[in-house]
């Protein structure tokens, strides 16, 4: 997604190396995607449409 918009940055974070950050975002299973520092979240490996839905939900407000 980051490739398609200059506004989007994507970071794959190894949760066991960055446990504090993972804990702050209540990551208990992986993959777990947080959007804009917790404004949105998608748990598990989901189709891209689900991630778009979550983006639409948090960016609309």
């Amino acid at each position: 997604m980051a490739m398609e918009s200059e506004w989007v940055q994507a970071e794959a974070i190894e949760a066991t190396e960055f446990q504090e950050l993972a804990a702050r975002h209540y990551v208990s299973g992986v993959p777990n995607t947080t959007i804009n520092d917790g404004a949105g979240r998608v748990v598990g490996s989901v189709p891209e449409g689900k991630l778009v839905q979550e983006l639409q939900r948090i960016l609309a407000g």
């Binding site: 918009s5 974070i13 190894e14």
Partner: peptide, 28 residues
């Protein structure tokens, strides 16, 4: 240079006008 995403997803992303940070937590 090809994200491999659906056309619909690409269209949505092209319309974004605010910063989005996706942080994907993973384990090995």
């Amino acid at each position: 240079g090809d994200s491999g995403l659906d056309v619909k997803t690409r269209e949505y992303l092209k319309g974004l006008e605010e910063p989005v940070l996706l942080q994907v937590f993973v384990t090995p």
